[in-house]
Write a protein that binds this DNA or RNA. Structure first.
Length: 152
DNA sequence: GCCAACGTTGGC
DNA sequence: GCCAACGTTGGC
């Protein structure tokens, strides 16, 4: 059992989209970074906790809780020439990009980035590191507990 | 829109 | 394998 923070642009896929999706699940499409892919492919397991983070928006921050609800499988958008996420170098036989499905758990009052930065307990969170751009980052159990017990 | 930080690409 | 150029991310 691990914990993760996953960034999504709310215009693309917000916590509300997840809450209203069929079965309350969405495939985490569009990751095109090897480190983030490797987390999904190699480390995520069904049941892992997810902090659902809204990025590139007026109020960036944690907007809800979700959980991993599938093992990794090829991201179908890499094969679709009409998709923004199409990758001409990827083939069905040797897919380059993998994803997991994520299931809604609950929406939370938005925890802004600035609030996360205020807490010494969270100072080592990878998402808060200077220059961090990774869309999926590991969260420690201590960080997870602090956020879910004190900030939500 | 700016810009720091970082990843990727491709020539050599 | 190096590294400059370029593209992207994402907060502000």
């Amino acid at each position: 059992m691990r914990y993760w923070l996953m960034k999504s642009e709310p215009d693309e896929a917000s916590i509300d989209h997840l809450a209203h999706a069929p079965k309350k699940t969405l495939p985490w499409t569009g990751v095109r970074n090897y480190q983030a892919r490797n987390f999904m492919r190699d480390q995520m397991q069904i049941g892992d906790g997810v902090l659902f983070y809204h990025s590139s928006c007026p109020e960036p921050g944690i907007a809800g809780i979700a959980k991993v609800c599938s093992t990794a499988y090829p991201d179908p958008t890499q094969f679709d020439p009409k998709s923004d996420y199409y990758d001409a170098k990827s083939t069905q036989e040797t897919p380059r990009w993998m994803l997991v499905d994520v299931k809604f758990v609950k929406k939370t009052p938005l925890i802004p980035l600035a609030t996360l930065r205020e807490h010494a307990e969270l100072a080592d969170m990878q998402v808060l590191a200077r220059g961090n751009r990774l869309s999926i980052t590991p969260v420690t159990e201590a960080q997870w507990r602090f956020i879910t017990e004190h900030l939500v």
